[in-house]
Design a protein around this nucleic acid. Structure first.
Lengths: 303, 303
DNA sequence: CGCGACTACAACCCTGCGTTGTGCACCTAG
DNA sequence: CTAGGTGCACAACGCAGGGTTGTAGTCGCG
């Protein structure tokens, strides 16, 4: 479908006549006629009743019109998403199913008019560079060190970890589990990429509590991981409490909170202090900064 | 913006490489390269980082991607809106600001997934013909006579009428007004088109209560009408209680219910009995049929 | 019945897109 | 370090398609 033809269709509707639409588009009436005819041919319906006093929409044309306008609006939004200046707030999240994306969804529910573009960069360092350059407006990341002086940051959410096991696992029936108890167990996290801040987090977690975290093997995504976990009596994995997980009922997986202490993943938000984007202001107001809670554990770099 | 280029962009994202995307689209790799380059030129941003192992999205590309997918979905919906078979439920309403449109909005809130296309035909006869031919699925209209035997109909809403006056009008302070009291007053309704079922309704209303309803002058729309009403001590107009009206605060208009009896506009829904559209079933279930209430007036043909 | 308003059809031209052919950069294996 | 493979970009060419000018046809109205 040719968007120029759709634009022409809408112009004819608004003008009421092909000639006037042609004048607005600064093309000839014949070109308008051709474009509309081409659109009608592609859709295999007549969109206008041509009369000696102009053009009136057919029933099909009336039904098509709102979709045509929406199509043009979508085109405009798409173009605006990459237009420097006056674009939607662009935010980096560590993953689309993880807690920061959830926080963004909650923000969007509270501010339905706020335009957001969500991206995922390689790691916190890439996010810092992107925020500094202005390529993105803000980033949800855990910060393993102080951010550069030209950036502002706030701790927004300490996310408690949960253990995911299959029904045959030794801990499957536990209501909660202490991290020290996991020392002998195999924790499988195939997604970990060395050098990222989240790999650093799980390194520190493993070192603190003597865990065995395996990142071996290729990462085929969440579903194959859950498949394997569900069938294993020895493998388990970690997820954050807000992580979106869905699994078939027959897999009978369990999410077991970890307690005493509760390992938490320290999500921060950071942004450039000189960024005037109003949606950024609203987002910061929406997120309460938080301090470490009692009975929780986080890496030393998070304090 | 060329939708084929957008489609190609998405194909490259999904494939991860230009070559594979080209194979899926059954064009050459060079054509894919050209299309993406053209899109990048139009948007004035780089969408991919080209490497020896394929193409990875840039930050701008990541931001653009969801808008691109939405654009293609909008295209598909637009095409589907005029595709015979398996299209959205197409319903005729008497006007987009009047009660039937409001009932449809309520239905849509209750069934957010239901796809609706709203059209407005000339009058009830045109709507009957369109429903019979299958051009539309259903219509909200007042029926001045029994519908053809192959159509089903149900009375869905008797809408009480209100009088709209400016602050200087003699009845401006009234809490309610009896229709007989309006006998000497001028009711101005410039939108009335002779031959339509709504003109017939107001004809009957005027005859019953001895009103003077003027339909003179061209119809410039609701706003100029309200402008005139607001400044006049003698002109008033009728609206339905669900009619959407907004006016500037300084106009100080009033909507006065009409009582004893309450003239009601008899909205019906009708459709073809053999139409299997599931959304039509849901719409009928959502609308309760209603009988004439006590103390109301409607034309004899509505009973 | 002729005129004015409006759109469709025809012929021509040129832009632009897709193709083939080729070059260049990068990664990897030996 | 080099040779080979992989993957994208550039160049040249040919054709389809969209825009323009010119003209015909239709409808409503005085």
């Amino acid at each position: 479908m040719d968007l120029d033809a759709v634009r022409t269709f809408v112009a004819v509707v608004d003008a009421g006549r092909f000639q006037e639409a042609a004048a607005h588009l600064t093309i000839t009436q014949q070109a308008v006629s051709k474009r509309v005819a081409g659109l009608e041919k592609e859709l295999a319906v007549r969109l206008f009743d041509r009369t000696a006093r102009g053009a009136r929409l057919t029933i099909d044309g009336q039904a098509f019109l709102p979709h045509a306008r929406e199509l043009l609006r979508a085109e405009e939004r798409a173009a605006a998403s990459v237009r420097p200046g006056s674009r939607a707030l662009r935010v980096d999240v560590i993953g689309r199913r993880l807690a920061p994306a959830e926080l963004l969804r909650a923000f969007h529910r509270a501010h339905p008019d706020a335009e957001l573009d969500v991206v995922t960069l390689f790691d916190a360092d890439a996010a810092i560079a992107a925020v500094r350059s202005g390529a993105i407006d803000a980033s949800f990341r855990a910060l393993t060190r102080q951010p550069p002086a030209d950036l502002e940051a706030t701790r927004v959410y300490d996310e408690p970890l949960q253990l995911v096991t299959g029904p045959a696992h030794e801990l499957a029936a536990a209501r909660t589990v202490r991290p020290g108890l996991l020392a002998g167990h195999r924790i499988w996290m195939p997604g970990l990429v060395a050098g990222t801040e989240w790999a650093a987090y799980y390194d520190d977690l493993a070192a603190e509590f003597g865990l065995t975290i395996e990142a071996t093997g290729p990462d085929f995504g969440t579903e194959p991981l859950l498949d394997t976990i569900a069938d294993s009596a020895t493998l388990a994995t970690f997820v954050g409490e807000l992580t979106r997980l869905v699994w078939p009922a027959h897999q009978d997986l369990r999410r077991i909170p970890v307690r005493d202490p509760t390992p938490v993943y320290p999500h921060s938000l950071f942004w450039r202090g000189d960024n005037p984007h109003p949606t950024l202001t609203a987002l910061r107001a929406h997120l309460r900064s938080q301090r470490a809670g009692e009975g929780t554990w986080a890496p030393r770099w998070a304090s």
